[in-house]
Write a protein that binds this DNA or RNA. Sequence first.
DNA 1: CCGACTTTGTGCACACGTTCACAAGCGGTA
DNA 2: TACCGCTTGTGAACGTGTGCACAAAGTCGG
Lengths: 251, 251
Amino acid sequence: MVSQRGEGETTTTPAEAADKERARAIPEAAVARLAVYLRVLSGMAESGVTAVSSEELSQAAGVNAAKLRKDLSYIGSYGTRGVGYDVEVLVSHIERILGLTRNHSVAVVGIGNLGHALANYGGFPGRGFPVTALFDVDADLVGIPVGGIPVNHIDEITAVCLEREVSIGVIATPPPAAQSVCDRLVSAGVQCILNFAPVVLQVPDNVEVRKVDLAVEMQILSFHVARRADEAASVSVGNNGLGVDGMVIRP
Amino acid sequence: MVSQRGEGETTTTPAEAADKERARAIPEAAVARLAVYLRVLSGMAESGVTAVSSEELSQAAGVNAAKLRKDLSYIGSYGTRGVGYDVEVLVSHIERILGLTRNHSVAVVGIGNLGHALANYGGFPGRGFPVTALFDVDADLVGIPVGGIPVNHIDEITAVCLEREVSIGVIATPPPAAQSVCDRLVSAGVQCILNFAPVVLQVPDNVEVRKVDLAVEMQILSFHVARRADEAASVSVGNNGLGVDGMVIRP
DNA sequence: CCGACTTTGTGCACACGTTCACAAGCGGTA
DNA sequence: TACCGCTTGTGAACGTGTGCACAAAGTCGG
C-alpha cells in the first residue's frame, strides 16, 4: 500500500492514522467470516483446545486456509510461525475488532411469530446482544412480557430507545409498516438496523442496514434447483429445445 | 462475445449450448438481486403499473441503474429502447429463470420458536414455496398441526420427504442436531438446504446450502457500530491512543 | 548451537463483480 | 418518411476479493 502522506498532520501522527485506516479497511466479506471463526474458536475453547493451526481452523469454518490467514492478517499478526494460533488470544482480538467488548442493546419491533422467536432467543447465542426493548402496534400485546421483557407500544420507540441506549434495531413487522418503523428508529438515534421485512428501506447515509430476506433465500435455492434440473436434462437427452421448463429427468 | 465453436458437436448445436451456458453463468449476486426486482415488479403490477424504466426500477430496488440493466441482460433482452420494460413480461421471465414456474415443496425441521414462525409464514410471501412437511424430535409435538400441517417425527424424514417430493429443506434446530438432520435430508434426496443453525454444515458437492445466521448479522452490525465510534472519537479528540475501546463521543 | 521441519504472513496474479460511457435501436412528431 | 430525443444493452475500465506459492520466522531434535 502506497502511504502517500499529505502535509495535513494536525493532531494525529501518520503511524496511528495508518493503523486506524487499516483497521477500517477490513473487507465486509472478511468481517462476516471473522464472526464465523469466532464462533468456531469459542467452541474449541470450551472443549479445552488451546492452540489451533490455520489448516484446522479453516476446515472447521468451511473456508480456504489461505483465505483464513489473510482474514486474520487484517486484524494483526497474532499467530506463531511453525505453531499456529493461541485460541484465547485469537478470540479476544476478534471480539475487540468486532466491537463485542461492549454490550449492544437490541430492540425488536413487531412481536409476531418472528418477533417472538427473536425475543425468546434471549441475548442471542452466547455473547453480548441483550434484547432490552420490544415494540408492537397491537394494544393487546403491550405490557405482556415476552422472553422476560414487557412489550411497549410502537409510539414509544423514540423515548424508550433513547433511555435504554439501543444501538441495534430489528424490524420484524409486516412489510407495509417497515419503512415507518425504520424512520422512527433512525430518529431515535439507532444507527444499525437488521431488517426482516421484504422491503427496501430508505435510510440516511449514516445508518447501516442489513437485511435478511427469507423469500429471496428461497428463490436463490429455487434457481439452483432449476439449474440442476436443466443440467440433468441436457445430460440425459442431449438438447430437445424445451428450454428451462423441461421436466426433471433422473439419469 | 466470441463464439469459438469447437469440433465436438454430438447432439447439441453450438448455439443452444452457448445459450444454456450463458443462462448458467448468471452471477450469484445478480440472482439475489433478480429476486428483489421480482418482488418490486410484482408490487408494481398489483398497483396497475404496466411499464417501467431501468431508472425507476433501480431506485425502487435500491441499486444502481447500470447494474440493474446488466442484471436483466443476463436473462435476455426484454426491454424496449426509448421506452423501458413491460412489467408483466419482466415478471414472467424472472420467474422462469428463478425456477418459480414449478412449486418447490419445503420441509421445516425443528419446530421451536423459529420453526413455528417459519411454518406459520404459510407458503412464504406470495409465491410458490408451500411448506408440506414439519419435523421435530419432541414426541409431544408429533401429530399436532402447526400452520395447518401436522408435525412428523424426525425419524420419518426420509420417507416423508421422498413421498412429498421435498426439494428444499429448512433446518431450524438447535446447533448440535443440525449436522445429523442435514445428513438425513441429504439421504432423502434433498439438494437444497436453508440453514438457520449457527453451524458449518458438511455436505456433498451436489447439495446447495445457504445459511442465515442471526448472530453473525448482529456481529457485523456491531463491527460497524465500533467503527463509527472510532471515527467519532478520532474526529472529536484527535487521537488519544485509546484504540477501539474508546467511548462514543458525540461531537 | 545448528539444521530440518512446520506454519504463518503476504506479494502477486487472477477472477469476479461493479461502474462508466456510449452506440444501437425504438417511438413520437412533423 | 426522416429526424429527434429517450432508454436499453453492452464493451471496456476499474476495484475488490480470492487463491497460490513462497519467503520469513518460529519450534524441536540432535
